[in-house]
Simulated assay, not measured.
Amino acid sequence: MIRHIVLVKFQPDVTEEQISAIFSELHDIKAKLPGVLSITAGRSESPEQIERGYMHGFVVDFTDWDTLQAYQDHPDHKVLGGKLVANAIGGIDGILVFDLPIDQAAE
Rank of each mutant, 00 (worst) to 15 (best):
D76T: 06
Q49S: 03
E16Y: 06
V85Q: 11
K78S: 08
V85P: 00
G90F: 09
D76L: 12
Q18H: 06
Q18D: 04
K78A: 11
D13G: 02
V97P: 01
I19C: 07
V85Y: 03
I19F: 10
R52Y: 00
A31G: 06
L37A: 00
I5Y: 04
S46V: 05
A86M: 06
L84W: 02
F23C: 00
P101W: 08
L26F: 06
H4Y: 07
D93Y: 06
K83Q: 15
I19W: 12
P47A: 13
M55D: 13
F10S: 04
V60T: 15
E17N: 08
V79N: 10
A105P: 02
A88K: 03
G94P: 10
Q11Y: 12
E45N: 14
D13H: 15
I29G: 10
G91D: 09
F58V: 10
D66R: 12
M1W: 04
Q72D: 08
V36W: 06
L33E: 04
D73K: 11
H74D: 14
D76G: 02
E51W: 04
V59I: 15
E16R: 12
L84C: 00
T63C: 01
D13Q: 14
G53K: 11
H74A: 09
E45M: 05
Q72K: 14
W65A: 12
H56N: 00
D13C: 05
T40D: 07
T67N: 03
V36A: 01
Y71P: 02
Q18N: 03
L84H: 10
L84R: 02
F98T: 00
A21D: 13
D99H: 06
V79S: 08
